[in-house]
């Protein structure tokens, strides 16, 4: 199983994701440049957190034009899994791969905490190893994590079971406590919390590792069927 982690100028969680895959999950990963366009040898694409292009203008606004993003769109269209974490989630919404947008936290400040979450939907390639309604804890670290979408979008997110993770004590003002969503097809996940920061006991918890194990499982299941 091979994961690609796309590094944009200013990404700062790219190496963290790489280590989570290689050291904790025990699978293969490459850090690839935002200029790469050939994603053919990868099973899953990871878009890391950080501050691509300094988050200037709007979080994720400049990164969406990177050459790699065209290939990410094609990759997603083929039904293979794509995950955007934190800034990666912001890039995916800016690029139109996920609905909605992420605005400033309601308290204006950056928030870095271990945050209690609930797994709302465990029937995705990213969550099949969690129990439904399982309570988990993952670190958040963002200034623009306040998920917003209009009422119609929210309605369709609910109808299509696209809401995957919810905050238990909404820290940033997100609509409907949303912490992570998938696209309609279910193969593109965007989430503000950082699963890659919770894959080792020494770092305070391993609830994030389950997410990566879920991907492994879903790809294995798919290749069997």
């Amino acid at each position: 199983m091979r994961f690609a982690v796309i590094s944009f100028p200013g990404s700062n969680c790219d190496r963290d994701l790489y280590y989570a895959i290689v050291d904790s999950l025990g699978e293969q990963a490459d850090l690839i440049s935002y200029t790469s366009t050939d994603l053919s040898k990868y099973d899953t694409i990871l878009i890391p957190g950080g501050f691509s292009y300094g988050d200037y203008l709007r979080s994720g606004a400049i990164a969406k034009f990177a050459p790699a993003m065209k290939s990410v769109k094609a990759f997603a269209a083929s039904g293979r899994p794509v995950i955007g974490i934190c800034n990666g989630f912001q890039i995916l919404t800016e690029a139109g791969l996920l609905p909605g947008t992420l605005q400033h936290n309601t308290n204006i400040s950056f928030i870095s905490e271990w945050e209690p979450l609930e797994v709302v939907n465990n029937k995705t390639p990213f969550t099949n190893q969690y129990q439904v309604n399982q309570k988990i804890k993952l670190p958040i670290a963002h200034g623009d994590g306040n998920y917003y979408c209009d009422d119609d979008t929210l309605k369709s997110l609910k109808q299509n079971h696209q809401i995957v993770f919810k905050y238990r004590n909404n820290p940033n003002g997100s609509v409907d406590d949303i912490a992570g969503i998938v696209n309609r097809k279910g193969n593109v996940l965007g989430m503000m919390p950082h699963p890659e920061r919770a894959t080792e006991k020494i770092l305070g918890g391993q609830d994030g590792l389950t997410l990566f194990q879920s991907i492994l499982n879903s790809i294995k299941v798919r290749s069997l069927s």
Partner: peptide
């Protein structure tokens, strides 16, 4: 103005 500079180079890339 770092933001202005970053936006300018993004526009140049486009």
């Amino acid at each position: 103005d770092p933001q202005g500079e970053a936006i300018k180079s993004a526009l140049h890339r486009l």
